[in-house]
Design a protein around this nucleic acid. Structure first.
Lengths: 169, 169
DNA sequence: CCTATCATGTAATCCGTTACATGATTAT
DNA sequence: ATAATCATGTAACGGATTACATGATAGG
């Protein structure tokens, strides 16, 4: 039983959200993702059904299924899950972000940088505005981790705006 | 025949490299990736065997197999491939980079930002140094697209260094 | 000559995406 | 009531990673 599985970033996202918020259904997770890390690390909703199942199968979560009505699945973290999450969090990583940016890739292969900038600039400006609004509205009450991440997102968006501005000039 | 396939970024990387460099073997592609876009968009070498095959099956490349010896596969781009690449390059994208950064994800869930900074800073500094060396050595002879991409990489690394420096203070 | 490394390739697995589908709830 | 939207789930497919494996070449 409890076939061993590899834990991916998706796994830790699920573990982290459940550890933080307590028992959750896939839909709860979907909401949580949308409300928190969704802009910088997106997930398909189907993953939030299959991943908890996988984790439960391997003993990192335990599943409770509603008796009547919708028979929704509720997942809670186990000791094993908590431990895995803790270990992962304690391990600093040297891994760097890769710049997997479609627009950049196109420019690399010769796409017109000015045209690309025209499409990218407004998109990045919208994203920056969204982040800044988040900070204005919730900055004070935001937990530390998400707050730091938000600052990173803002810094990154500023760079992209500066970069694409240069290309469009 | 020529079953229709979906073209992914990987597909366009292969098409782009072959269009730029002429006929190539998977190993040539591997070398080309390592020498050019490898730091900002990495690929498994196995993909450079399966992806050209996929593309050839759908008519975007044509395969020529050596008769004797190693029977290596050589791929050349077809008119269909050229057209697909051209169309893709001509289409600006609004899609934003996602910040899929493991270190940030860990911080989001509460990892110690200072410890993470200690691991990330040197890694980013190495990467920045590598980019700057590239620019110093090849900046003058680099094609436009890669040159622009390199500037983006440098700008991004600077931001990350600044960001993680703040966290370690 | 032997060994290490480079070069080349295949197979299996699995995660992630896409597509499909239906049950509840709210609004009109 | 009906339509629309929200909520919940499953199935199938495919691309990407991992692991395995062997052929050439160069260095000692």
């Amino acid at each position: 039983m409890s076939s061993e599985i590899r834990l991916t970033p998706t796994s830790y996202i699920v573990l982290g959200l459940i550890e933080g918020g307590g028992e959750a259904t896939p839909y709860d997770l979907k909401q949580a993702v949308a409300a928190s890390l969704g802009d910088f690390w997106s997930l398909q909703h189907a993953q939030l059904y299959t991943e908890p199942e996988r984790l439960a199968g391997a003993g990192y979560l335990k599943e409770r299924r509603e008796e009547g009505g919708r028979r929704r699945r509720h997942y809670a973290i186990t000791a094993k899950g908590r431990e895995a999450l803790r270990d992962w969090l304690a391990e600093p990583t040297e891994e760097l972000t890769e710049l997997r940016d479609l627009a950049l890739l196109k420019v690399f292969f010769g796409a017109d940088a000015k045209a690309m900038a025209a499409a990218q600039l407004p998109a990045h400006e919208r994203q920056l505005a969204a982040y800044e609004e988040l900070r204005r509205d919730f900055g004070k009450v935001m937990p530390k981790g998400p707050g730091i991440t938000l600052e990173a997102g803002i810094a990154a968006e500023r760079i992209w705006i500066e970069f694409w501005s240069k290309q469009s000039g």
